[in-house]
């Protein structure tokens, strides 16, 4: 019962983070800031939903599979994000920068 409540809380928290990230994806002003919003979905949203599902699954092969999905997401999402950022910069997408910035984009 306690385990059920904990897993429900985790799943709801993960869902909330997913929606937050999606709102950020719509609200953010330029491409690079949108990527930060998307990384919330990839990390916190995914982690909490998977943790909630793990608590539901108990100790079985399903748990190990969920952990494998989590590891896969956590290893691949930064690679895709990094490739995306680098490709965008190489193609000349200029990031919007705050005023009074010390370092310049060469």
């Amino acid at each position: 019962m306690l385990l059920d409540i904990a897993s429900w809380a985790l799943i709801l928290l993960g869902g909330a983070f997913c929606i937050t990230g999606a709102i950020g994806l719509l609200r953010m002003p330029d491409f690079f800031t949108r990527m930060h919003a998307a990384s919330i979905i990839d990390t916190l949203g995914a982690a909490f939903i998977l943790m909630g599902l793990i608590l539901q699954a108990g100790f079985s092969l399903v748990t190990v599979k969920l952990i494998a999905i989590g590891i896969l997401l956590f290893l691949t999402s930064p690679v895709a994000t990094h490739a995306l950022a680098r490709a965008a910069l190489a193609r000349g997408v200029q990031p919007m920068l705050a005023k009074g910035d010390v370092s310049s984009n060469s």
Binding site: G14, G21, F31, I41, G45
Partner: peptide
């Protein structure tokens, strides 16, 4: 669009 597609992929996995 690619960022959005990537997020859609992650959400689809979940």
């Amino acid at each position: 669009r690619v960022v959005a597609a990537n997020s859609i992929g992650t959400v689809a996995v979940l």
